[in-house]
Design a protein around this nucleic acid. Structure first.
Length: 189
DNA sequence: TGTCCGATTGGT
DNA sequence: CCAATCGGACAG
């Protein structure tokens, strides 16, 4: 069952927690690639110094974040990587959830090829690795997550006790906001 | 137009 | 710890 727009148009922290255990599915030239989402980070818009839309920043890059919940926000970083986010809330409220890691379930052979022969446990254990393994590039920026070539569907149920909250990674420039516990990890054991 | 820097990764 | 590598943001 593909998640509908109403799932995404909720407060960002709820969406972030709700995404844990859901299945990310990609169709690429007829091939199906999928994995269960295991780690995410919430980015809370204009009030969040770590967020690209801090203080209402609106540029060609961040434009997709102003779309309604259920669209993608994909950006290029460090001259070589893409990061994949899910936009939340309503149009004009620029918040999103960064997909940091998934547990691969289908299409591992393709993932391994696109990841340059990485070991199975390193195929999708970082945000840019997920993008590379799923062939997610800027071409998919701003598209809806409501069907092919990319969507998120119901996966496994995750009990609240299995979710850990931690500070976000790589946002030291955000000062005190860097310590906000907006990273959510699903314990797999 | 010029400068600075990054929501990362992989190897030392 | 550090280099890779270049688009984006912003100052001038």
């Amino acid at each position: 069952m593909i998640l509908s727009q109403s799932f995404y148009q909720r407060p960002t922290i709820q969406v972030a927690r709700g995404l844990l255990g859901k299945r990310l599915v990609r169709i690429y030239r007829g091939h199906r690639i999928s994995g269960l989402i295991t780690e995410v980070e919430a980015y809370l818009g204009e009030k969040d110094r770590a967020c690209h839309t801090y203080q209402g920043r609106r540029t060609p890059r961040t434009e997709a974040m102003y779309l309604s919940g259920g669209h993608t926000y994909i950006y290029f970083i460090y001259g070589m990587h893409f990061c994949f986010n899910v936009v939340t809330r309503r149009a004009g409220q620029p918040e999103a959830v960064l997909i940091r890691a998934v547990q691969p379930t289908e299409g591992l052979h393709l993932m391994r090829r696109w990841r340059g022969g990485a070991q199975n446990h390193h195929l999708t254990d970082g945000p840019a690795k997920v993008a590379q393994a799923f062939r997610i590039t800027k071409k998919l920026n701003g598209v809806g997550l409501f069907g092919p070539p990319l969507w998120i569907e119901r996966g496994v149920r995750v009990s609240r006790r299995k979710i850990v909250c931690l500070p976000r990674i790589g946002v030291d420039y955000a000062g005190p906001h860097a310590k906000w516990p907006l990273r959510f990890c699903m314990q797999t054991h």
